[in-house]
Design a protein around this nucleic acid. Structure first.
Lengths: 340, 340
DNA sequence: CTGAAAGCGCTTACAG
DNA sequence: CTGAAAGCGCTTACAG
């Protein structure tokens, strides 16, 4: 197979027909003799023909780019679901990209995107440089941020989440149950989302006249292992210092904490209450079912896609920045301290 | 904003420059005066310019289509991960499509695909009609099946899974533990994968001199709720008829069964052993950690992508159809019957 | 059914 | 830096 694919002119020459005839076969026009069509198709397949120039894209074949720093978590899956559903409604296709854990796309991503180009970009928990934004803007490619971290650039349309409120209501719930030694396992410290939730956690303590023991605040990434390690750590403290409840940064972290408790013979929720974050589908079905904070991740994906397509299609969009509320969902993993 | 986007000729006329100048700005060429560039960019943005004809695609900006009947399960997420990783290595982007639960793409999907067109298609657990295959073939768009169901068309390259072997080793494990009343909760009955695993389940019984009670074989979809319903059903049988072990069709089903057991006060694994299928990441972390069958889903996605790109790039591919083995992973959800 | 001719939306040298 | 001219890889009427 040659390095460069042939043009229709070369195919036409090889078969002994004219360029328009090859074009007709390529486009499935009916006015070609069956024998001619067969010969042309054979030559197209044999020479490995590929279009070098796309025709005007028919309506309904648009692309949008959905960019994650990392996929694979139920958290990402929820957002993907929301985006796919909205995209299917709008008849656009979704290119899914992950940045291998980085929170900033490399310039090579911008190159590839401009070469594509998509109708628009959905950027999940990631940042662009000013230069990258400018280059997309020049080519009229709008960007909408899906950002549970809560601080995309001021002039970028975005869908976010009320992290502070989520931290507040989760902690209020634990305090209302009677807990006074409550640990927090947060996401990465550099994320504003982690700080916002921790601030809500602190405020809930303050309003109840409680103080937060700094030794009970741990951080890590959002995956199960980090929750497991923090859980082992916290639950290995001397009994008097040990927390009676943990507010985790994700449902996956919460599962890690539950796992650690189980290994140490500490029962949830009787001897330890655990609150997760995200309300991923599995949270409802594990044992005990997780009390958690529903961030409405699928709705975020859905709204972001709708907002992006509204911008692409030039529809009036009054609200281009909004935060969804985070609602506490009480299940079985929380109870009064020392309950039985 | 007009319904159709302008051509560069119209932009040129609007700004009062020539067509080549607009072309240079669009392509980021340096030989344009800054004031001219600024004016042209403003006009491009203002008129909402979009390319109507793509240039020759630069190397390294290819697309592949990844088609699922339904995403959102950890099962799909594992495959997506494998595909994304391999695609990133090959510098191709992935368009993720779900068919809304259908196992055959509509003709509209073929239209959209031909209009794109991608370098190739990865089809997960889905089928094309002969006509659909032909139309893709005509345009030199290869298709590789990722098919845990095990029976793609004979001439389609595919990556599959040894379902029969998976069913056999899961059931042998339960029998070796001493179980004699073992239930099976399978996936949808029409899937060959379900039948292959059930055949392995039966053969394991036969070789041990046991018979399968048809009343202990249930089917449903692969999601948690189906496992939960089957579990409630099976565990509500009179104690003498009740199974002491369940072989589930997916880890999600297994979680549903565990949940049902827990609600009925039946402890796992002491009073009921449960084997899952897939070995999704969460299986290791739930309590009890699931004994399950590892299908190597991420590896399937990875190999399928590599195979597809080998075909696209005309590399010699000796093996175009292969099945990965399914390995039993023993954890905590299985034990001898009546153990304590 | 076929293909010469005209046209489309660009891009590429290259003269000024 | 700019743009007239030529060219690219197609597609679209339309005459035969």
């Amino acid at each position: 197979m040659p390095a460069t694919s042939p043009t229709i002119a070369e195919i036409a020459r090889a078969v002994g027909v004219s360029v328009p005839t090859v074009s007709k076969v390529l486009n499935g026009r009916p006015d070609v003799a069956e024998t001619t069509r067969t010969k042309v198709e054979a030559a197209l397949a044999h020479h490995g023909y590929r279009r070098r120039r796309a025709a005007a894209p028919p309506p309904g074949t648009g692309l949008i780019d959905l960019v994650f720093h990392r996929i694979g978590s139920p958290w990402a899956t929820e957002i993907i679901q929301g985006v796919e559903d909205a995209a299917a409604d709008r008849k656009v296709s979704v290119i899914l990209t992950q940045l291998g854990g980085a929170y900033r796309p490399p310039d090579a991503w911008v190159e590839a995107t401009l070469a594509r180009p998509p109708l628009g970009v959905l950027l999940v928990s990631s940042r662009l440089t000013d230069d990258q934004r400018m280059r997309l803007q020049r080519r009229s490619i709008p960007v909408v941020a899906i950002d549970t971290d809560g601080a995309p650039p001021a002039d970028m349309p975005s869908i976010g989440s009320d992290n502070w409120g989520g931290g507040l209501s989760a902690t209020r719930h634990l305090i209302a149950l009677g807990h006074t030694r409550i640990a927090a396992v947060t996401g990465p410290e550099q994320l504003l989302a982690s700080r916002a939730r921790l601030d809500g956690f602190r405020t809930a303590h303050t309003e109840a006249g409680l103080t937060v023991d700094p030794d009970l605040v741990r951080s890590g990434n959002f995956y199960i292992e980090a929750g497991y390690r923090a859980g082992r750590d916290l639950l290995s403290l001397p009994p008097a210092d040990r927390p009676t409840a943990v507010f985790a940064g994700s449902d996956m972290q919460a599962l890690g904490v539950v796992r650690a408790a189980q290994e140490l013979g500490i029962t949830v929720p009787h001897e330890l209450s655990v609150v997760g974050y995200d309300d991923v589908p599995v949270a409802e079905w594990v044992s005990p079912a997780l009390t958690t904070v529903d961030q409405q991740l699928a709705t975020m994906g859905n709204l972001a896609t709708t907002l992006l397509m509204d911008i692409v299609e030039g529809r009036a969009t009054s609200t281009t920045r909004l935060n969804l509320t985070a609602e506490l969902v009480v299940r079985e993993s929380t109870a009064p301290p020392g309950a039985s």
